[in-house]
């Protein structure tokens, strides 16, 4: 089975983002990581190929020197090949990214000389959290789509995919090729070992600088704001827990919240 995982590099979501002097999110000092949901997708793809045979290709859109470490990392945890595509727009919204990825899928298929059976994305990225790109990509490729997938198994007619729902789960049968987005499965992504890290560092990762057609975004961000801050209130730090609770309850009673 040939699987393509679309990967996005994002600012580490453990860091709190503030607006810079130019009024835009100041991301310069924040570590760059692979979007967590994309790492779940890569792990799911690698497991699928380990159990049933196949190959995992990862691809991303970005500036080569900026995103290469993330691609190397994905090879170190089991991806067989990686590609980097230069952006198709300077100010991309989800629809322009999805258009770029649809083109990326075709170009990558031409390069490897085979077509993909399954295309995976994380269910959302931890920076913009819009959960649109996978769904839009499926539409642009006119393929079946299932979101928030936590398990994939080969089935007679293609694949059986299990979706996490608000109440539990739902199972779908899709024919290949299909597009799915991945939620957190029961397992965690593997860590690279020293040997796989060393090998990945030497990997040849092609950079396609003008493969994608320029597009205009349908949505633009006009302005950023920081949400209104709350004032911190009273801090109770007593040696004795009984005193602390008595003070807290008295304050809550004064404020009529009990």
């Amino acid at each position: 089975m040939n699987i393509l995982v679309c990967v996005k590099q994002v600012p580490d979501d453990f860091a709190k983002v503030h607006l810079g002097e130019n009024g835009k999110p100041a991301l310069e000092g924040i570590d760059k990581v692979v979007n967590a949901f994309d790492t779940y997708a890569v792990e799911m793809a690698v497991r699928l190929c380990e159990n049933h045979g196949g190959r995992v290709v990862v691809a991303t859109i970005g500036a080569e020197e900026e995103v290469r470490p993330s691609m190397v990392q994905m090879i170190a945890v089991g991806a067989n090949q990686a590609y980097i595509f230069a952006p198709n727009t300077a100010d991309g919204d989800e629809s322009s990214v999805a258009a770029g990825l649809a083109e990326l899928v075709k170009k990558t298929e031409e390069t490897i000389g085979e077509s993909f059976d399954l295309i995976m994305c994380g269910k959302e990225s931890t920076d913009e959290i819009s959960s649109q790109v996978g769904a839009m990509l499926a539409e642009k490729l006119n393929l079946s789509f299932v979101s928030s997938v936590i398990d994939v198994k080969p089935a007679e007619a293609g694949l059986c995919v299990k979706q996490e729902t608000e109440e539990g789960s739902a199972s779908y049968e899709v024919s290949c090729p299909a597009v799915v987005t991945v939620a957190k499965p029961e397992y965690d992504p593997r860590y690279p070992n020293l040997k796989s890290k060393m090998a990945a560092r030497k990997a040849v990762i092609p950079y396609l600088s003008d493969a994608l057609t320029p597009v205009q975004p349908a949505v633009r961000c006009m302005n950023y704001q920081e949400p209104a801050k709350r004032e911190a209130g009273v801090k109770i730090q007593e040696k004795n827990a009984v005193d602390a609770v008595a003070r807290a309850i008295a304050l809550m009673a004064d404020d009529k919240v009990l």
Partner: peptide
Amino acid sequence: PAYGGAVLEDMQFA
């Protein structure tokens, strides 16, 4: 909201 709610974005369609 974006970035875990740390930032609010004002968006407009083309």
